[in-house]
């Protein structure tokens, strides 16, 4: 790994643009969260939509960043790609979790910074799996569809089976929800690191 490869890799994946998109997302979510709380009759509970749905968008941005214009060429290169892709995913996930976690405090006991971090992990895992299965261009599909459905469908009571299937909507620090999110991240990241994003020129 010669050092000069790193900036080339960053440019080839459009990572400056991705970081900019994450920064915009951060600013918008912070503004949105503040605005929601400012309204009369709404307290920090009103931030739930932001806290739960912003990680979906962050994951979508991360998933799209896996896109390579030269996928066919990349696959033929002898480089240990899984390291690059793994580092790529870890760096963006860490960045998103750090930024979002510090930007939107929310209500840590129910829906707050920990929820954001858990969401970033789980949804990024889904996006990574989506990239491996459908290609980076459609990688946002699984987190968006799952996130939207869980947001509407999740029961209001914590715990039980819902802690697994509706992990993204669990208030507070439910161990099962955290475990599911971490597992999703590990599985998705491993899948895309090893297999790489699917070719997405077919559709």
């Amino acid at each position: 790994m010669t050092p000069s490869l790193v900036p080339l890799y960053l440019r080839s994946r459009g990572l400056p643009g991705t970081a900019a998109a994450l920064a915009v997302l951060l600013a918008v979510s912070r503004w949105g969260a503040d605005r929601l709380v400012d309204r009369p009759l709404f307290d920090s509970g009103a931030q739930v939509p932001v806290v739960v749905l912003v990680p979906v968008l962050a994951a979508a941005v991360t998933g799209l960043s896996l896109h390579s214009r030269s996928g066919e060429l990349d696959r033929s290169a002898p480089l240990p790609w899984w390291r690059w892709r793994g580092a790529h995913l870890l760096a963006l996930t860490g960045l998103a979790a750090l930024w979002l976690g510090t930007a939107v405090p929310g209500d840590p006991a129910h829906f707050g910074a920990p929820t954001l971090v858990r969401g970033v992990l789980g949804f990024t895992g889904l996006a990574a799996a989506g990239a491996a299965l459908f290609g980076a261009r459609l990688s946002w599909l699984p987190p968006v569809v799952y996130g939207g459905t869980a947001y509407l469908a999740a029961p209001r009571t914590p715990g039980g089976a819902a802690a697994v299937w509706a992990w993204s909507m669990q208030p507070g620090a439910q161990p099962a929800a955290w475990a599911t999110a971490v597992l999703l991240f590990a599985a998705g990241a491993a899948l895309v690191a090893v297999r790489g994003p699917a070719a997405d020129g077919v559709r």
Partner: peptide
């Protein structure tokens, strides 16, 4: 992709509604 859109829409709406039937 249309068929899949229809299927995903139907399934997610059914899940979202029936998961909340007790409410």
């Amino acid at each position: 992709a249309g068929v899949w859109v229809g299927a995903v829409l139907a399934v997610s709406v059914i899940v979202a509604v029936l998961a909340r039937r007790y409410f």
